[in-house]
């Protein structure tokens, strides 16, 4: 379970998170929606301890992320897979080495046979051919980089998966494929996931529940149906762009 209680974060005078209360139950997928620049990625970085809150509490599996000693934080991070927005692949390493680095058990990391098998399995899970493993990230398309980023995130068999804008910058066909991939990974790995996105349509497809971040606070949390039927003007305004598409899909 992931819990954020009254999380406040400011950079200089700019308040990004202004008392965020947010909860993800074990095994569920929650999509965190919001316009660009509202602090969705900042919130995600708090969960993995890349940023610490100025005030408030971040709990992952009952452990307080801001209060954890370094060694225990490192151990917790090994249970969290983080798929970065632009992949954040190590550009001097091959795809194989990138994914291998995600195997965070040192004994397994040094076992070449295990690594070969695990890298091949992760590539299969993200629908990439085994031949990709020898390429450098510079030789990959944007969509492939995101997939390799996800493969690296799942290589250590995490209990939690955090996706930062998995469909941003992708064309509609690849965005749909990415949504299907997230859905499938969820079914196969049964992890607790947070998907940060501003793609309403995709989020409705992959998430059990949806949360809308607005002006540094969670404005609404609910199922796709609850969002569609919401009376809140801010929610309706945000959904408006994709509503037509949703209705078409439902029909």
């Amino acid at each position: 379970m992931i819990e954020l209680k009254g999380v406040y974060k400011a950079f200089g005078r700019q308040v990004v998170l202004d008392g965020v209360d947010f909860e993800v139950r074990t095994g569920e997928t929650v999509a965190l929606l919001g316009p660009s620049g509202t602090g969705k990625s900042v919130l995600l970085k708090h969960i993995v301890g890349l940023l610490m809150p100025d005030r408030g509490e971040v709990l992952v599996g009952g452990l307080s992320v801001p209060r954890l000693p370094r060694r225990e934080l490192t151990e917790l991070r090994k249970r969290i897979g983080y798929a970065f927005q632009m992949g954040a692949l190590f550009d001097s390493m091959s795809v194989y080495e990138n994914i291998r680095l995600g195997i965070n058990d040192e004994t397994q990391y040094r076992d070449k046979a295990y690594c070969d098998e695990r890298v091949a399995e992760c590539l299969r899970l993200v629908n990439l051919q085994p031949e990709v493993s020898n390429k450098l990230p510079a030789a990959l398309s944007g969509g492939m980089k995101k997939r390799v980023g996800i493969a690296r995130a799942i290589a250590g068999k995490p209990s939690y998966l955090l996706y930062d804008e998995p469909t941003s910058g992708l064309d509609p066909v690849n965005a749909d494929a990415m949504d299907e991939l997230i859905e499938r990974l969820q079914k196969e790995m049964k992890v607790t996931s947070v998907v940060v996105s501003h793609d309403v349509r995709g989020s409705f497809k992959v998430a059990d529940r949806i949360a809308l971040l607005h002006h540094g606070r969670i404005r609404k949390v609910g199922t796709a149906e609850e969002f569609v039927n919401a009376k809140d003007e801010v929610v309706r305004e945000f959904l408006e762009r994709d509503f037509q598409l949703l209705e078409t899909d439902t029909e």
């Binding site: 890349l50 490192t74 991070r77 090994k78 983080y82 954040a88 680095l101």
Partner: peptide
């Protein structure tokens, strides 16, 4: 470049120093 492309964050997130 590694800092601005989040590669250093990625290493930390993977539980590596």
């Amino acid at each position: 470049t590694m800092r601005v492309t989040e590669q250093i964050d990625a290493l930390e997130a993977l539980g590596r120093n």
